[in-house]
């Protein structure tokens, strides 16, 4: 029976050993703080959904243009909707877009990156061209075009559209990491000991890059939420569902900035900023975990 490749890695390159990642993650203050902030935002929205009557999301359900008061803690819109009630729908929807798009981007990107980098040859040649082409296109321009074509999108459509364009950077980065990793001795050992290419990728390479994939996932998450907001503000978002971007869109449509209805536009803007902050901290934390040189700066 072949030698277990892992044993050799542990002996030869102890610092790259997978064990210890979870401890590192839990000990990283940026990840912990970012995570708590993220859960706080999501938790508040979910708790709000249980407490606030969803009917208040509909137009004409409450007096228009009221600043924050007891009956509507975040005020009301020109269309007679409660801003707080809208937030209980918008926050989970925006996070949903981020999650689905980031998941799609990371999974597709990793698959192509690993296959292209590990197998090389004509597979790599073809995939590299495809990846480079997607890298070269201005993603948001394409998103605008597609969203404009697929009018009447839902939150899930949007997530998929954004996700389908979120894989090229991860693919490229993972490919180069794989190119470097596959020349290391532990991969040679695994190959000599008879592991298949697929096994080597899943059992040797993926664990090596887990924290890096995590950082990448969070980054894609941020970009997707941002892309959603950008598309929605342009009027290309889901018309019948509320997201943070659509809230900003509607508040702009009704001139809320001009009319000093600060509660309408400021609420989604501040929430977006906090979401960015939370996710960015997590991203930085993952970066530190995967790159030991950064760790001293914790």
């Amino acid at each position: 029976m072949a030698l277990a490749a892992k044993d050799i890695i542990t002996e030869e390159t102890p610092s790259a050993a997978p064990p210890g990642y979870s401890t590192l993650i839990l000990q990283n203050r940026k990840i912990v703080f970012g995570g708590i902030l993220f859960l706080l935002i999501l938790g508040t929205a979910l708790a709000g959904a249980l407490m606030i009557d969803p009917k208040l999301r509909r137009s004409g359900s409450i007096t228009r243009k009221l600043p924050p008061h007891a009956a509507a803690v975040l005020g009301t819109t020109s269309l007679g909707q409660s801003v707080a009630a809208q937030m209980t729908e918008a926050v989970p929807n925006s996070i949903q877009v981020g999650l689905i798009a980031a998941l799609l981007g990371t999974v597709i990107g990793s698959l192509l990156g690993f296959v292209s980098g590990y197998f090389g040859g004509w597979v790599d040649a073809v995939l590299r061209v495809v990846i480079d082409v997607f890298l070269a296109v201005p993603v948001l321009l394409f998103l605008v075009l597609i969203a404009a074509l697929v009018r009447g999108v839902t939150v899930q459509h949007m997530a998929i559209i954004i996700g389908l364009f979120a894989w090229s950077w991860p693919a490229r980065a993972i490919r180069s990491q794989t190119l470097s990793l596959k020349t290391r001795p532990f991969v040679d050992v695994a190959r000599i000991s008879g592991m298949s290419g697929f096994d080597i990728i899943t059992r040797e390479l993926v664990p090596q890059m887990l924290p890096w994939l995590g950082a990448n996932f969070v980054n894609a998450f941020i970009v997707a939420i941002l892309a959603e907001a950008g598309l929605s503000i342009l009027g290309l978002g889901p018309q019948r569902e509320m997201t943070l971007g659509m809230m900003i869109y509607w508040s702009l449509s009704y001139g809320s900035i001009l009319q000093n209805m600060w509660w309408w536009w400021l609420t989604p803007v501040v929430t977006l900023m906090l979401l960015f902050l939370a996710l960015y901290l997590i991203h930085l934390g993952f970066d530190e975990v995967s790159n030991p040189r950064l760790r001293t700066q914790v």
Binding site: K55, S59, G60, L79, R151, G235, Q239, R240, S253
Partner: peptide, 23 residues
């Protein structure tokens, strides 16, 4: 765009699904 939102909400309240298609 504004009228669509209100009418879709009214039909939605009555139980009719409306898909708004802006073109």
């Amino acid at each position: 765009v504004k009228v669509a939102q209100v009418i879709a909400d009214q039909l939605g309240r009555a139980g009719i699904k409306v898909t708004i298609t802006p073109l």
